[in-house]
Design a protein around this nucleic acid. Structure first.
Lengths: 342, 342
DNA sequence: AACCAAGATGCAATCGATTGCATAAATAAA
DNA sequence: TTTATTTATGCAATCGATTGCATCTTGGTT
């Protein structure tokens, strides 16, 4: 059993008294090798417990069949869904997926990018971190013609494939829904505006208001980092001000939840007095009390699509690629936190 | 900008009129190279935009600095936490992490294992799928002396590092806590007993009862698949029986939640009339109403520990490794669903 | 029988970084 | 100055699979 030394195609060749090139070709089902020898070779390979040294092959062919993925945090439902989608497609096509998380830290993102590049991944799928304003480390891939797909948090300046969620539409629908539920003073707890997604959510919110003839009141918009604490404080500020809002559209579910918590702690009824809609459909949003209305982002589908796009580009001999920007639709999920009895 | 052709150490060598070996050594900070030349070389490398071809280096040195991870499902909080922990440690030590999911499918798990092996990962960290009864594909690593760490769902027959959670202890503490809160008729909604982890949880529950002088009543134990539905039905059955239990220890948080939902729907107060403790500390358990008491499994720590173990083994010149089986402690988190006012 | 084409296999170079050993240069000791 | 010693650098082989080109078989055709 214990077989420690590497078995190479040369070992097989020697045993069968043929050349290594023939072995190589046979194992790759090259039709130029006769049926008979191919079978002999495969049989021998099997018996000898041969496992190809992919490192050697990669080195020679300059392909790794590896896709690098960079996300801010693996341990978050949206991103792990995307990864799951990527993995699903990539695996079927014979690709390996290497995953790294930037922790929303620019320095780490840069290191990861250089590492992936040095590892000669065939392509990169990524969503940038909150701090990412410099983009030299990403330009690297563009310059060297390494296929790249941005998703969700994209970099506009780099011309490549992009998959985004229709944040504008989602925010619009969320806000519109709040209006339909009878709200008229609708606040917004938003994210950092240097990220396009939060800008678009905010724009969708504003557009829905103005389409309904409601003037946008900047005192009702609070931007922050969308952590639990941010939502709590923002809600406090909104509620304690004179002329309290009767609804809040939050740019993620975390702040929606912390808003609800603050409101409940202060005896303000959700949704009767303040209706809430979040964003992202985090798993907890459907099990908390009240369940949180939110916008579903199709993470798994985004992942699949990203993998398909990048594999297509990897396999197309890199000439004249037409870059696509895919906008994924969103879906409004109405739950208790915004549904007012009529 | 557009720099398409590979820059190698030979290009640097040629430009500086020195040999490639000197360049290689200088870039690796080999002290045998003089300060002066090292600086010249590094400067030139920087200027020329040199990026080492790690494929070539890996091939030569037979190390990939890559750790392969196989989990049943990426998109689940426990596993993504573990991955996060692995990634954290591995990254700091200069390792790359490759992640694959088996989807609890034996065939896919086998394919992944062979792929990882062919890619010559330096080590493998894995939690097996539900279907995994054959283990040839895992023996492969053991035979070829590839470092391996099992976590959570381990294979007993393979002698290697293992990291498991102390399910017995966790269940014991949960049950004990319920007793301390004044409960005396404590039910258990358990998982399939062919999985070790659920067997141990049940054993811990029974031991805690008998240690407290409470006889185990089998009519209070219901085993199932621990889905939402299972918890709901089990609770119904328990509650509608004569002599209703005054507490339930659930083998996961999902059933704990559905138990709570059933109880609330039927006007039974949690925790006053029936106290509940779950298991796993799923993210939702701290945000639902009431918040759910549960047992924390240190996923992130398990990941870190697994990475540390495997890296240690990779770096130790593979002679005489002592395999460790680490049992991670659990922590009881007391929340509203079990805390009775005194 | 002579020639050709198609089919099957082998030869040898190649990818880029690493590394044991040899050598050259610089310094110290005699 | 000569020899030993240290320090710095170069030479060349190597890792295993791939692949363009050369070579050898074989059978078919005239």
């Amino acid at each position: 059993m214990g077989n420690q030394s590497e078995i190479t195609i040369h070992d097989i060749a020697k045993k069968l008294n043929i050349s290594a090139s023939t072995v190589s070709r046979a194992l790759k089902d090259n039709p130029i090798i006769s049926e008979a020898t191919r079978k002999r070779i495969k049989k021998a390979a099997e018996e000898m417990g041969y496992r190809p040294n992919i490192m050697a092959a990669n080195f020679r062919t300059k392909r790794t069949n590896t896709i690098g993925v960079i996300v801010p945090l693996i341990n978050r439902h949206f991103f792990s869904s995307v990864i799951s989608g990527i993995e699903e497609v990539a695996y079927d096509q014979g690709f390996t997926v290497t995953i790294s998380q930037s922790n929303d830290n620019l320095e780490k993102e840069q290191k990861i990018a250089y590492t992936l590049f040095s590892n000669r991944v065939d392509g990169v799928i990524l969503s940038i971190g909150m701090e990412t304003k410099e983009i030299d480390h990403l330009q690297l891939f563009a310059n060297r013609k390494v296929p790249m797909v941005f998703f969700d948090r994209i970099v506009e300046e780099i011309e490549t494939h992009k998959i985004i969620v229709n944040d504008f539409e989602g925010a619009y629908k969320a806000t519109q829904h709040l209006i339909e539920q009878g709200a008229s003073r609708i606040a917004h707890i938003g994210g950092p505006l240097n990220l396009k997604i939060y800008e678009n959510r905010q724009k969708g919110y504003c557009k829905a208001l103005s389409d309904a003839g409601i003037e946008v009141d900047n005192s009702l918009i609070i931007n922050g980092n969308l952590r639990r604490d941010d939502g709590y404080k923002a809600t406090k500020k909104l509620v304690l001000a004179e002329n309290r809002p009767d609804a809040i559209f939050c740019a993620n579910d975390t702040t929606a939840l912390s808003a609800i918590i603050f409101l409940q702690e202060n005896g303000i009824k959700v949704p009767e007095e303040v209706a809430i809609v979040g964003f992202s459909n985090e798993p907890f949003s459907q099990v908390v009390t009240p369940t949180i209305s939110t916008i579903r982002q199709p993470g798994f589908l985004i992942g699949k699509k990203a993998a398909e796009l990048i594999i297509k580009q990897i396999n197309s001999n890199k000439k004249s690629v037409v870059y696509e920007t895919i906008v994924m639709p969103t879906e409004l999920i109405i739950r208790e936190s915004s549904k007012r009895k009529k």
